[in-house]
Simulated assay, not measured.
Amino acid sequence: MTTLDQLQNLKPHFISVTCSNNKSDFEKTTLKLADYINNTLDIPAIAHLPAAYLSANQVKRILTELDSLNIHQVLALRGDIIPRIPRKNDFNYASDLIKFVRAQEPSFEISGACYPEIHPESPNLVSDIHYLKQKVDVGCNQLITQLFFDNDKFFAFKENCALAGINIPIIAGIMPITNRKQALRLIKTTSAHLPKKFMAIFDKYENDPESLRTAGLAYAVDQIADLITRGAAGIHLYTMNHAETALSIQKTIGSLFKTNNKQLNNQ
């Protein structure tokens, strides 16, 4: 719990709790962590719900348990499709799960995921925005983006959402790159556009861990300052269990969140 204890000092608007696509792990780990965040640290917790791997009865039971813990926020996702793990049949898409949760009592605040550079499985932008609008129409309260490194992509996406009638808050997901292994994995697997400035940092400091961390944090700080200045609803940091990353960013530009009344959240 050390990482969570350190994040407490940042006073984030929420901490989201990821989960595996394994029911027993969810009930043993995710609920335990969400309980600790919400009721010991006194920070609102958001529990992830993977639609593809939960039945309607499981969701009902989980919501009841969350309610008993005074946790009333969830992030409704389809979940990554993993061939070796059998899917459930009650919810084909995140929008199905959102609609189901919205119909339950008591009421939950529901976050949804979005992709500034189009979901990898979407054939085009029009289709992607169409299905995102479905999430909003059935009861999603706010959206949290996948990571991105080009702010212009985010603001173009935000404008497309507005044109489609998607007017709920869109929280920008930022992942500070602080080590070589993380950067290499990202370059190999992500569909996010990697600007020349980002690649230049990696190329120059690939074999200099301390400088790579410093430059990676500086890049994230620059992104966040620009996002806040240009009107992003808030920032969701993908900290990857490294509290010092969030603490460093807060120390550098924490005043911007207060001045602009913006959210700072962690995962």
Rank of each mutant, 00 (worst) to 15 (best):
V136E: 05
I166N: 03
K99P: 02
N141P: 07
N141Y: 02
A164L: 11
Q142K: 13
A172L: 02
S191T: 14
T189R: 14
P169L: 09
N179S: 08
E109L: 13
F100L: 08
S122I: 02
Q146S: 10
M175F: 01
E109W: 04
A183F: 15
V101E: 03
V126M: 08
K181T: 14
Y131P: 00
F148Q: 07
L186F: 14
E117F: 04
A162R: 13
I177K: 06
I144E: 00
M175Q: 11
K153Q: 12
F154L: 13
K181W: 00
N141A: 08
Q146N: 12
K181I: 07
P169C: 11
C140R: 09
I166A: 07
K181P: 01
F148N: 12
G165A: 11
I174D: 05
V126S: 12
R185S: 14
P176Y: 05
C114K: 03
A164C: 10
C140Q: 07
K153V: 13
P120W: 12
E105D: 09
D96H: 14
I177H: 02
P120K: 13
S191D: 15
L143V: 01
D152C: 06
I171R: 07
A156S: 14
S127E: 15
K153L: 03
E105N: 14
A103V: 01
T190Q: 05
L186I: 13
T189V: 08
F100V: 02
E117T: 03
K153G: 00
L97A: 04
V138H: 03
V126D: 15
I166W: 01
I187H: 04
F154D: 01
C161K: 01
P176S: 08
Q182F: 01
L147V: 13
C114D: 00
Q142G: 00
S107D: 12
G112C: 09
Q104T: 09
P169Q: 10
S95G: 02
A94S: 15
P123T: 09
I110P: 09
Q104K: 10
T190R: 06
Q104E: 11
G139A: 04
A172W: 03
I118N: 12
N160Y: 01
E105G: 02
C161N: 04
I129G: 09
A162K: 13
C114T: 15
H130W: 03
E159C: 05
K135I: 05
E159N: 14
A164I: 01
I177N: 09
F149Q: 06
Y131N: 11
G173Q: 06
C114M: 05
N160P: 01
E117V: 08
